[in-house]
């Protein structure tokens, strides 16, 4: 807990300094006529001040619950699949990308069987496409897979 507070305090201090510099560059104006950098400068001062306080007085807060055993591999698979999803959504299209994301999530993150993963992913991607693209007219990206006319 103490270490987290110290790291957060140091980060806030650094962030405050950086923000103060950018606020100054934006032109803070005066207290009679505040410029666009005025408010960011106030935020910078508060952030830096609080960072110093947190760094010098860590662990004042109640002890939080210690995390249980972490499942890092499923976590990183989930995280990278999300980023990949956003990166390829436009190119591959909604149906294929969503199907792929759901299969990865169900099979490798949630450890479901192949059958459950494939069937659930296909149903969810298909039904959501029908609901959002056809019924609600949300222009979801079509990508490489041709869709029936009117979809």
């Amino acid at each position: 807990m103490d270490r987290v507070d110290r790291v957060a305090g140091a980060a806030a201090l650094l962030g405050g300094l950086l923000l103060a510099y950018t606020g100054w560059k934006l032109d803070p104006g005066t207290s009679r006529l505040p410029g666009p950098g005025f408010f960011p400068l106030l935020i910078a001062l508060s952030m830096g001040g609080l960072g110093v306080w947190l760094f010098l007085h860590p662990g004042l807060s109640e002890k939080s619950l210690r995390p249980a055993d972490s499942r890092w591999i499923p976590f990183f698979i989930a995280l990278f699949s999300l980023i990949a999803y956003a990166a390829i959504l436009s190119g591959l299209g909604y149906l294929l990308t969503t199907f792929g994301l759901l299969v990865i999530q169900l099979r490798w993150v949630e450890k479901r069987s192949w059958i459950t993963s494939l069937v659930t992913a296909a149903l969810a991607a298909g039904i959501s496409l029908l609901l959002f693209r056809v019924l609600l007219k949300v222009p979801l990206p079509v990508g490489i897979l041709p869709l029936p006319k009117g979809w």
Binding site: T98, L102, Q105, E110, R112, T120, A124
Partner: peptide, 22 residues
């Protein structure tokens, strides 16, 4: 385990649907 991927799908779908923007 089934619910969580579906929630993820709806969150991403909702995010895209806001302004149709990646």
């Amino acid at each position: 385990a089934i619910l969580s991927p579906l929630i993820i799908m709806f969150v991403l779908l909702g995010a895209y649907g806001l302004n149709n923007s990646i």
